[in-house]
């Protein structure tokens, strides 16, 4: 179990990432800010999974399932988008 201070720190980091991500989008950097927005989203989601959902202390099986799901999502996006990217 993470202690309370860790959870609060994670919360502050999440809010900071939200702020930066929104600010970056307002700069209108075109596809650059899109990439940054997604990176910030992945970081935030990772923080929630790792600390709030305490996967950090989860068993190997849980980590395998969580990681496996991400891989299958990558398959869907990678192979699927590959069609439009190469048309």
């Amino acid at each position: 179990m993470p202690n309370r201070m860790t959870l609060v720190a994670v919360w502050l980091v999440l809010l900071a990432l939200l702020g930066i991500s929104t600010w970056v989008a307002l700069l209108r950097l075109g596809s650059w800010h899109a990439a940054l927005n997604l990176i910030f989203a992945v970081a935030s989601a990772g923080a929630v999974v790792w600390f709030d959902m305490h996967l950090r202390k989860g068993s190997g099986t849980l980590k395998l399932f969580a990681g496996g799901t991400v891989i299958f999502l990558f398959i869907m996006f990678g192979f699927g988008l590959a069609d439009w990217l190469t048309r």
């Binding site: 939200l18 929104t22 910030f40 989203a41």
Partner: peptide
């Protein structure tokens, strides 16, 4: 987490 991804996808990336 779903919303963490929906927010940038809907509100940010194409802005």
């Amino acid at each position: 987490i779903v919303w963490i991804f929906l927010y940038p996808t809907l509100y940010l990336v194409s802005r």
